[in-house]
């Protein structure tokens, strides 16, 4: 028991490194929020664009989502950081990581929204259009509210999964939580910092999960 406390809950060590850990945590929070806030709306925009059925654009969208769902996030981060400069685009490690993750999330989110749109019956479209609502208004007021509700659980899964990918930012030296805590671990030969890191990840994602449950509830309606 003492061993466990010494190895994983060394309070002296915790307080010594707390400022560094906190800084790493805040970077992780920022990256996660940015990834979700960029990735999910972008996915929705892509799904809606795809719905308009403009042929060459749709090919592009489908290529985009297939490509970015297939490629490992790690590779994408490395490419964004090391390859884009050759095309004249130099990104901070932080930006490169967020960009890569947000793009991957948008590709998955597009597919989730797309599946949701297709799950709403054709009759809903017809009912809306028959009252004189335009395509866009039918989409906005009738279809999307139903799509958002059914899409929240799978989107939450994806968003959490991909936000955890912020830890991959360490490959391009983003001083995010896992990078910081594992460095501390190597330096002091004690994994306490990792414990703190894990607890902080919980602190980050548990409220997020609660929030999405609340969102799900907010969009719910009685169903037969």
């Amino acid at each position: 028991m003492d061993q466990i406390v010494r190895y994983f809950f060394d309070f002296q060590l915790m307080s010594a490194y707390w400022p560094d850990i906190l800084r790493g945590f805040l970077i992780t929070v920022q990256m996660s929020i940015l990834t979700v806030v960029i990735g999910i709306p972008l996915g929705l925009v892509l799904a809606v664009l795809r719905l308009y059925g403009i042929r060459p654009l749709n090919w592009l969208i489908i290529f985009y989502i297939d490509f970015f769902r297939s490629i490992p996030q790690l590779v994408l981060i490395v490419l964004a950081y090391f390859a884009l400069p050759y095309f004249g685009l130099v990104l901070e490690p932080f930006t490169a990581t967020v960009l890569a993750l947000a793009i991957v999330l948008s590709a998955f989110a597009e597919e989730i929204f797309w599946a949701g749109i297709n799950a709403v019956s054709k009759g809903q479209w017809e009912a809306g259009r028959s009252t004189g609502l335009s395509f866009t208004k039918t989409l906005a007021y009738i279809i999307l509210p139903q799509v958002v509700r059914i899409s929240i659980p799978p989107l939450t899964n994806r968003a959490i999964g991909i936000s955890k990918g912020t830890t991959l930012g360490s490959v391009v030296a983003v001083p995010e939580l896992l990078n910081v805590t594992s460095s501390i671990q190597s330096n002091v030969a004690n994994p306490t910092a990792l414990t703190v890191g894990a607890l902080l990840f919980l602190l980050l994602f548990l409220p997020f999960v609660r929030f999405t449950r609340w969102l799900e509830h907010a969009y719910s309606h009685p169903r037969s």
Partner: peptide, 29 residues
């Protein structure tokens, strides 16, 4: 859209908007 406003339609499948109340279904258009 202007034309369809003047042509009411009732469907076999009913197709009420499930996320809206009866009132909301009628007020939307």
């Amino acid at each position: 859209n202007l034309l369809r406003r003047r042509i009411g339609m009732v469907f076999q499948g009913i197709h009420l908007y499930p996320h809206k109340t009866a009132l909301g279904n009628v007020t939307l258009a």
